[in-house]
Amino acid sequence: MKVRIGDNTIAAGEPVYVIGEIGLNHNGDVENAKRLIDVAADAGAQAVKFQKRTPDISTPEHMKLTPRETPWGTMSYLQYRYRVEFEREQYIEIGDYATMRGLDWFASPWDEPSVDFLEDLGVVAYKIASASITDTGLLARIAATGKPVILSTGMSTFEQVETAVDLLGTHGLVVLHATSTYPLPPEEANLRMIPTLQQRYPGVPIGYSGHETGLQISLAAVALGATVVERHITLDRAMWGSDHAASLEPHGFENLVRDIRVIERAMGDGVKRVFPGELAPQAKLRRVLA
């Protein structure tokens, strides 16, 4: 089964679809968002992803009045959410910029009005964040768009994943293995879930959304057959904000994409043969000919 997003095809045997997760790492600044788009494009990724919220709806009630220390002073958590949220004109600006740089762009909507907001902007796909996997109203609204859907499965039981997949359907669906620990320790990566998901949903592209600090786990996911790799990107891991510490800086993201492309070339087709490069060593070293 192949899933088409923009000009890219997601399936086994196709180039790994690499997503630079910008999320809120722009810290509410359009110029930061554009610089992060440049990071993804310069590295050779195919997409960037943002997050879209209607803060009054998506912010849990018990968190709305919680004080938050920010670069703009102390404010409530709800005020902070509004402070870092892009509105329509800003999304048009960064979306056009991503398109100009040759990238697909889309977002994770955290509430149903945000789906309508993104539909109005003509996004090519939707990403469902792990935190939203149990929001059946949101999932149904996304499914109704008919757009491709990328589903992250962190902080979830297999039963919750099954319910979400049943609601979304498998046509146009990509499922990402994820563990929602920030940053992710290796012992919680559980990469063997990738073949488990491949067996459970044959034909559905399976990928990996990582929150580790290095590259090794994401590269191992590709070797296990991940067709999508999503990683948070930042301009500087020391920047203020909750996701920067579990993100890759520009050089690290560039190295990730480079190494993914090497692994793709190295995987081969599993058919044993004598390669052209082996002929000279064979002639020189093999004493007994078959």
Rank of each mutant, 00 (worst) to 15 (best):
K2C: 01
V3N: 06
A11T: 11
A12K: 14
G13I: 10
P15S: 14
Y17V: 10
V18D: 00
V18Y: 00
G20N: 08
G23R: 11
V30M: 11
R35S: 05
A45Q: 03
R53Q: 08
T59K: 07
R68T: 12
T74A: 03
R81K: 15
V84I: 15
E85H: 05
I94T: 09
A98Q: 01
T99N: 09
G102M: 10
W105G: 00
A107P: 00
P109W: 05
W110T: 10
V115W: 05
L118T: 03
L121S: 07
A131Y: 07
A131E: 09
T134D: 12
D135L: 04
G137H: 04
G137C: 01
P148G: 11
V149K: 12
S152R: 10
S152K: 09
G154L: 07
M155E: 06
Q160V: 10
E162A: 15
L168N: 11
V174G: 10
L176R: 06
H177N: 11
S180K: 09
T181L: 14
T181R: 13
Y182N: 06
Y182K: 12
L184P: 02
R192Q: 13
I194C: 08
Q199F: 06
R200W: 07
P202V: 11
P205E: 13
S209L: 12
Q216T: 15
I217S: 13
S218V: 08
V222P: 02
V229N: 01
T234K: 04
L235R: 05
L235C: 02
D236E: 11
A238C: 06
M239N: 11
M239K: 09
W240S: 13
G241N: 08
D243K: 08
A246T: 10
S247F: 00
E254V: 00
V257K: 07
D259L: 07
D259C: 00
R261S: 00
I263K: 02
K272R: 12
R273M: 11
R273P: 02
F275A: 15
A280K: 15
A290T: 14
